[in-house]
Amino acid sequence: MILGSTLSADTVSVELTVKEAQALSAGLKFPADPQISKEARRKVKRSLDQKLFKSSSNTIAYHLLDV
């Protein structure tokens, strides 16, 4: 379990395009490219996952599992 006090000092950096930042911060919609906000959320989520779950962020070799 991760305690909130240890997370308060941690930072995460995510590189977003201007349109992605607008879509996340102001909820702007871009009819010509509706995937912008989805891509921005994906980038933020991936960055958080890598920060919070460092050991589990490795790719699982499913073909090696005996199932």
Score class of each variant (00 low, 15 high):
M1S: 14
M1H: 08
M1D: 08
I2Q: 09
G4F: 03
S5R: 05
T6F: 13
T6M: 13
T6A: 15
A9N: 05
D10I: 09
T11N: 00
S13Y: 06
V14C: 02
E15Y: 04
E15R: 11
T17Q: 01
V18L: 07
K19I: 04
K19F: 13
K19H: 10
E20Y: 00
E20L: 03
A21C: 08
Q22I: 01
A23N: 00
A23D: 03
S25N: 04
S25D: 05
S25W: 08
A26C: 11
A26G: 07
F30T: 11
P31G: 05
A32I: 14
D33C: 08
D33F: 06
P34R: 08
P34A: 12
Q35N: 14
I36S: 05
I36E: 01
S37N: 11
E39V: 02
A40M: 05
A40E: 02
K43Y: 02
K45A: 09
K45L: 12
R46D: 12
R46K: 12
S47Q: 10
L48M: 02
L48Y: 03
D49Q: 10
Q50Y: 05
Q50C: 14
K54F: 09
K54M: 04
S55G: 06
S56T: 11
S57W: 12
N58W: 10
T59K: 15
I60P: 07
I60S: 13
A61M: 10
H63Q: 09
L64I: 04
L65D: 13
D66F: 13
D66I: 10
